[in-house]
Amino acid sequence: MENNLNGKRILVESGGGVGDLIMFTPALRSLKEKFTGCMITFLTIDKTVDVINRLPYIDRVICIKRGRFMGRYRVLPDLIKQDYLIFTEWQPHLLFCAWILRCSHRFSVGRDGKFLTGTLHKRIRHVVSSSINFAAQTNAELLSDMLDVKLNGDMTKCDVSMPTESERTEVTRLLNKIGIKTGDDFILLSPFASSKERNWPLKEVEKLVELINKNYNIPVIFIGNTDSPFIEKKFQYSLLRKTNIIQLIEVIRRAKCLITPDSGPMHIAGALNVPCISLFSKDIPSRWAPKHNCWPIYLSYPCSPCTPEKFRDCPYDLKCMKDITANMVFKVLSNILPLK
C-alpha cells in the first residue's frame, strides 16, 4: 500500500552542483502535487542554493555553509523536525547525529563495512551514477523507493529559480555595459566547466567564434565562473565572473543558443527550454543532457564513459573533449539557427 505523506516533513539532501539540484526538481514537483500537505525541505551547500530556493513546491531550502565554524552541525535543529531524512550522498557526520538523536526514517546511499550503514532504516538503491537513464528519472525512482510512493508526471521538465524584475533590470545593465543593447540577439559560449578536464580547448573556441562572426551577424558572449586573460584580451563580449547564479539564469534565458560542456549552464538552459549545444566528454548524454531543445555532441569513444579519477589522470589525453572541433559545433549550430 502506498504511503500517505500529507502532513509529513521530508528532507532531501544533495551536496552536488547546479545540475544535480536541477535534476531533483521534477520529482519534488511531482511529490508536492501528489501530497499538497507535505512539507519539503532541501538541504544543499551554499554555493548552489540560489538555483532552486525560489521554487514554490519546495517549502524550505537550507544550506551547509562551507568554511563556517561548525557549519555542518548548524542544520541539526532542522533534522530533528523531519519525519523522513533522505541523504543522497554519504554524510557520516550528519548521519551519526541523526542516529544519536533518533531521527525517524533515515535513508542514505550507505557504505559497505561502515557502522553507520547498519543504522539506516533503508539504503538507497537508485543512484544516478549507476544508471544510464536520465538523472531526473533516476531521482524520481529514488524518492519513490524511499518514501513508498509512486511519483508520476513528466520527469524531463526541470525548473530553476526565476529572477525578479529588479534582477532582470540589473542583467540589462550588465549587457549594456559590454555593448549588448536591449532586444539584441546573442549566442552564449561557456567553454569552462567545474573541472578543468572538461574545458573545451581555447583553440577550438577561437575557431568557432571566427565561424560565427563570418556567417552570422550576432555577438558571442562568454559566460562562466573562470578567469581567462586569453578570452578577455581576444574577444569583445565577456561576462566571465560577472554574474551570480540568478543573473546567469536571466542571461541564459535571453540567449538564442548556448554552447557549453556538460555543466551547470547546460542544465539551466534545459530548464528554460533555451536551445543548447552540449559537449560531452567523460559522461553520457542519456544521463545528463536535457531532453528538450538540446543537441549533445558525444564522440562515444571505447573509453567513455569513465570515472572522475580516471578522467583526472586520462591516459588518452582527454581526446573525448579535445577531439570535438569547432566545425562539428558550427554544423549543429547552423541547423538550430539556419544560415541566411
Rank of each mutant, 00 (worst) to 15 (best):
M1T: 07
M1K: 11
L5C: 04
K8M: 07
K8S: 14
E13A: 09
G15H: 04
G15T: 07
G16V: 03
G17L: 04
V18E: 01
D20K: 03
L21M: 05
L21C: 03
P26K: 03
A27P: 08
T36S: 10
T41Q: 02
L43A: 04
L43Y: 00
D46C: 09
I52Q: 00
L55Y: 08
L55P: 11
P56F: 05
Y57R: 05
R60I: 11
I64K: 06
I64E: 08
R68I: 12
R68S: 14
M70E: 04
M70D: 06
Y84V: 03
L85F: 12
L85N: 03
I86C: 06
E89F: 11
W90V: 07
L95M: 11
L95P: 00
A98G: 05
W99I: 02
W99L: 04
L101V: 09
L101W: 10
H105W: 09
H105Y: 12
G110F: 01
R111M: 11
K114Y: 15
F115L: 15
H121C: 07
H121K: 12
K122V: 02
R125L: 15
N133K: 13
F134P: 05
A136T: 08
E141D: 15
L142K: 05
L151Q: 06
L151I: 08
D154T: 14
D154R: 13
T156D: 10
C158H: 08
D159N: 13
D159I: 03
S166M: 11
T169D: 14
E170Q: 10
V171K: 04
T172W: 15
L174E: 12
N176I: 03
L188N: 06
L189D: 06
S190R: 03
S190Q: 13
S195W: 14
K196A: 10
R198Y: 00
V209G: 04
N213T: 06
Y216S: 11
I218L: 12
I221S: 02
I221Q: 06
I223N: 00
N225G: 14
P229K: 00
F230C: 11
I231N: 01
F235C: 11
Q236H: 12
L240T: 14
K242G: 07
I246S: 05
Q247I: 08
V251T: 06
V251S: 07
R253Y: 13
R253I: 05
R253M: 06
I259R: 01
P261R: 06
L272G: 04
V274F: 01
P275W: 00
C276T: 12
I277S: 01
D283V: 13
C294W: 00
L299Y: 02
S300H: 07
Y301W: 14
C303W: 05
T307W: 10
E309C: 01
E309Y: 07
F311G: 01
R312V: 05
L318D: 09
I324K: 00
A326S: 11
M328E: 10
V329I: 14
V332I: 15
L337V: 11
